[in-house]
């Protein structure tokens, strides 16, 4: 039965794209809404897994268990104020989002600036042609984004001024030509891979999402 459901749902969505009839479009939109409803229930499963992990940590008094209480309380607090009092601007939910979640999110990711820089120092050594290309492209893009750094480093000399004028254009060219070429090759490969995998799922060849384990496992009733 799951394979039939997958096949019918997949076939309808793939074929409907080429049949822009009013009925088809209505059913198509309805199906997307259905998928959103089902996926929202799946979120509960994910959240239950998160809560269970933290609950087990608290119950067994594992290392750093008090922080799990913080995580669970934060979660329920957010749910209560968001579901109980709305999520529009001016609500407590929005205040928590503005003054707790956004700063935490931005700071967490900004922290990566330090780690990525130290990783770059360790890995960006021009040992081969490939590594040199990687290094040069990264430097061009970084300096092209902030050319004033060149004036700080080299001073307002002839070379500094020339590089200040040259680097943004060079960076733009690196981004628009060789980078696009490399990325486009990857995108083509990924796209063909997506299509092949989607076809395998629709035709029931790929069943790992059902717990069947790849090509041909049993999938139950």
């Amino acid at each position: 039965m799951p394979l039939v459901i997958t096949f019918l749902a997949g076939l309808f969505m793939a074929v409907q794209f080429f049949v822009p009839h009013e009925i088809g479009v209505t059913v198509y939109r309805g199906m997307l809404d259905w998928a959103m409803i089902v996926a929202s229930f799946a979120l509960v499963l994910g959240i239950s897994s998160l809560l269970r992990t933290h609950w087990e940590k608290i119950r067994r008094r594992r290392r750093d268990w008090p922080y799990s209480i913080v995580a669970i309380v934060s979660f329920f607090l957010m749910c209560i104020v968001g579901i109980g009092y709305g999520h529009q601007p001016g609500t407590v939910f929005y205040w928590i989002f503005d003054y707790i979640q956004v700063p935490l999110d931005a700071t967490m990711f900004s922290l990566l600036a330090f780690f990525i820089a130290s990783a770059a120092v360790r890995t960006f050594r021009a040992r081969s042609v490939e590594a040199t290309l990687l290094l040069v492209a990264a430097i061009f893009v970084m300096l092209g984004r902030v050319p004033s750094a060149l004036l700080v480093m080299l001073g307002d000399t002839g070379v500094g001024q020339w590089l200040y004028d040259f680097m943004p254009d060079a960076s733009e060219w690196v981004m628009n030509v060789p980078t696009v070429a490399g990325k486009r090759g990857i995108i083509f490969g990924v796209s063909l891979g997506v299509i092949a995998t989607a076809l395998r799922i629709i035709l029931g060849i790929e069943r790992s999402h059902l717990g069947g384990g790849g090509g041909g496992g049993a999938v139950g009733p």
């Binding site: 039965m1 799951p2 096949f7 749902a9 969505m13 998928a35 089902v38 629709i202 139950g220």
Partner: peptide, 16 residues
């Protein structure tokens, strides 16, 4: 497996 099959089928069909 039924809802998972539904969502997977739908998103696969949409992906092509």
């Amino acid at each position: 497996r039924w809802p998972i099959a539904f969502v997977m089928g739908l998103s696969s069909g949409l992906a092509i």
